[in-house]
């Protein structure tokens, strides 16, 4: 299973924003293979969460571990059959271990997003 994690500039710690994270880490839990790709949505004018969700779906991820996630992105991820987990620690590695041990729970609260935030 491929797990996606939005990570910060250091490519290790979770970025609090899913849509605008500079990097997206993809880890294969079976093989241990890991790649870190630039998040194409980071600089999006609008709809960053949607674009990031599309990107995660295109990488065939089956799960996402994130600090927070907007409603729109959640809709896309759900449609793509991607499970969304609430992060439990600041570092990506700790979260992968926690997911493996069944210590992460699925996210139930999604924020309304920032689309149209500028009045």
């Amino acid at each position: 299973m491929i797990v996606a994690i939005p990570v910060d500039e250091d490519q290790k710690s979770l970025c609090p924003s899913f849509g605008r994270a500079p990097w997206m880490m993809f880890s294969d839990t079976e093989t241990g293979a890991q790649k870190i790709l630039e998040n194409p949505a980071a600089q999006a004018q609008g709809g960053a969460g949607l674009k990031a969700a599309q990107f995660v779906a295109d990488q065939d991820a089956a799960a996402l571990i994130t600090v927070r996630c907007g409603e729109n992105a959640a809709k896309v991820l759900k449609a793509a059959g991607i499970a969304i987990y609430q992060s439990g620690a600041p570092e990506a590695a700790e979260n992968l271990a926690a997911l493996r041990d069944g210590r992460l729970s699925e996210m139930t609260r999604f924020h309304p997003g920032f689309v149209g935030g500028q009045p």
Partner: peptide
């Protein structure tokens, strides 16, 4: 779409009306 109002998942396009 520069507003990212469209996505394509599970072989189907989806539109987000408010975007």
């Amino acid at each position: 779409c520069r507003f990212n109002a469209l996505v394509y998942v599970k072989k189907a396009p989806m539109v987000f009306p408010e975007v």
